[in-house]
């Protein structure tokens, strides 16, 4: 007897947004990436296909970071001293796009130079983060946005206390922005309202709901993402945006990835554990509906990529 699987029909859907501009679109990217477009919860193929696969970004820095795990330094090697080389290597490792994080030590000129060198070294769409200090972010991101006009970069990170300058320069120079809020559905929605109130169309916002690593609050992050997606599908336009999350940053902060010595022997091999941590964190978030996954280790990229392929195909 054939069984009729009941299907949900949602009134809302996720907006489609495109990152990066090719020559035809007014930029220099080899290809652009389209995200979003979902009409149901993640990977419920019997209800609707997944219109656009989640994309994997690799995070690189404008200068060699001193606080990164030696495991990451080992795998990226010399390339960490030069963002252009690092970007190239990231592309080879399978990234769909690059996140370039600027550092506090960068001057506006340094920042522009780093962004330009990455843009010429790799044809992938680019996300640029400021160093994470309101004033410094604004100081660096404005000249970067101007220098890369038309590339459809994603500029970040906008927060509720500091979004005006970044949004204004994104509007003026044809870029997108990343809007981060601390794990709360209402706060995410509020920031999107503030940003669209300034006149930036919603399809130029990537929503960053913030997450925690496996064992460090991932359940909460997962549930917030799930609720954001449910609200979006129920028709709440201010949550109908693709989501970006940073499991690489979160997982490499965890003791399990960070520390190789002085931990119980039963924890096993350090490198294997660290990559597991990043991979498991990332895959859980993919399942909760993440559209962009920012990772740090090339091995994790490989594994998450194959997990995504299986999910999308199944």
């Amino acid at each position: 007897m054939p069984i009729d699987i009941p299907k949900d029909k949602w009134p809302g859907s996720i907006k489609k947004i495109t990152l990066g501009a090719t020559a035809a679109e007014g930029g220099t990217r080899a290809k652009s990436i389209t995200l979003g477009g979902q009409t149901t919860l993640p990977y419920l193929h019997f209800e609707a296909p997944t219109p656009n696969s989640p994309a994997i970004a690799i995070e690189i820095k404008s200068r060699k970071p001193e606080d990164w795990s030696p495991l990451l330094a080992e795998v990226w090697g010399e390339a960490m001293n030069d963002p252009a080389k690092w970007a190239k290597k990231a592309e080879e490792a399978g990234a769909d796009l690059i996140v370039l994080a600027l550092m506090l030590a960068d001057s506006p000129d340094d920042a522009v130079k780093a962004v330009k060198s990455v843009l010429s070294a790799s044809g992938l769409p680019l996300i640029v983060w400021g160093p994470g200090q309101a004033e410094k972010d604004n100081e660096l991101l404005v000249p970067v946005a101007e220098a890369a006009k038309g590339e459809k970069l994603v500029l970040g990170i906008c927060e509720d206390k500091n979004y005006r300058t970044i949004v204004a320069t994104a509007m003026a120079n044809g870029h997108l922005i990343e809007a981060r809020t601390p794990m709360d559905v209402n706060l995410a929605k509020q920031l999107n309202i503030l940003i669209t109130d300034m006149g930036l169309p919603a399809d130029r916002i990537l929503m960053d709901p913030t997450t925690g690593a496996l064992g460090y609050g991932i359940e909460y992050g997962y549930s917030v993402m799930e609720r954001l997606r449910l609200a979006a599908l129920q028709g709440d336009s201010m949550t109908q945006l693709p989501m970006i999350v940073t499991p690489g940053f979160e997982a490499w902060k965890a003791k399990e990835s960070k520390v190789g010595e002085g931990v119980p022997e039963s924890w096993g091999d350090w490198k294997a554990r660290a990559v597991h941590w990043e991979t498991l964190t990332a895959v859980a978030l993919v399942e909760s509906g993440a559209d962009v996954i920012v990772l740090r280790h090339p091995e994790s990229v490989k594994r998450v990529k194959s997990a995504i392929e299986e999910l999308v195909m199944a």
Binding site: D184, N186, I193
Partner: peptide, 15 residues
């Protein structure tokens, strides 16, 4: 708590 955070906005998150 949910009602509180959604009301922490002018006038409200749900316009």
């Amino acid at each position: 708590y949910d009602a509180f955070t959604s009301a922490l906005f002018l006038p409200h998150t749900d316009m």
